Amino acid sequence: MRLVHSSLHADVADQLRRRIFDGELAPGTFLDEVHLAQALGISRTPLREALKVLTAEGLVRHEPRRGCFVAEVTEQDLNEIFPVIALLEGRCAYEAALHATDADLQALEVLHTKLARHARSKRINEYYATNFAIHEAIIALAGNRWLAQVIGDLRKILKLARLQQLHAPGRLEQSLSEHLAVFAALKARDPEGAEAAMRTHLTRQRVALDDLARGTRPKVAS
């Protein structure tokens, strides 16, 4: 399908970003400029501009004389990013507990009902999409654009790996329990509790990825 919008390279970047997040372009995949340009019905100039955008976001890596490849998230990347994003999203949960209105909490209630339904049905893709929407809603409720900006940049990288952790045995149910703990603290207008619950949730995502890599069951708190 030929792209015709005025900001062509942004449209191309959006399309490639979606294909990366959907797993259609797997980590390590070589991005053949000739093939991609033909498939998108565009010249290589906007494609190259789009690849520069994705490289700046950390989703693509450029190797001199070789070209561009979909970025691979390393264990070191995960170890460095998760503690940071746990702190940042924990702070968002803290602020959200202070600012959330009754209407905001009702909207979150709807999302958590959907989340539980997807967990019971083992619909991982739908669960992840709702999970993502809940995190976005809490970040928005915090009302801190600087937090939102930094978290957004980090989440683009983690999105390459986060869906995997939901495939770990027992992780879907554990994730739901963690989300419900965050939501309970928000409803109680308990900022410290919401912050702690969100930090626990993000930390256990990293543990689940590690467990999945090792082939072990996720650790459940006593």
Rank of each mutant, 00 (worst) to 15 (best):
F69H: 12
K156M: 12
P64R: 12
L176R: 01
D190Q: 10
A71I: 01
H118A: 07
N144M: 05
A161I: 12
A116M: 04
L180H: 09
A181H: 07
V84T: 13
S175T: 13
L87K: 10
T113H: 11
A148K: 04
A185C: 11
F132D: 11
A161H: 04
W146L: 14
S177I: 02
L141W: 03
A188W: 02
D77I: 08
L105T: 07
L105W: 10
L172N: 01
H179W: 03
L78E: 14
L176E: 02
F69I: 09
A71P: 01
A93W: 01
V84K: 07
K122H: 14
A140L: 08
Y127N: 00
E173N: 13
L160I: 07
R145D: 13
A129K: 06
R91K: 14
Q76A: 13
K187M: 09
R66N: 03
T101W: 03
K122D: 13
Q164M: 11
L186R: 04
I85D: 01
R117A: 14
E72P: 00
E178V: 05
Q164P: 02
V73L: 10
I151W: 00
A188F: 03
G90D: 06
L160E: 00
R91Y: 08
L87N: 09
P169A: 07
E89C: 05
P191W: 02
R123P: 00
P64M: 08
L186D: 03
L176C: 06
F183Q: 06
E75D: 14
A71K: 03
D104L: 09
G143A: 05
D77Q: 09
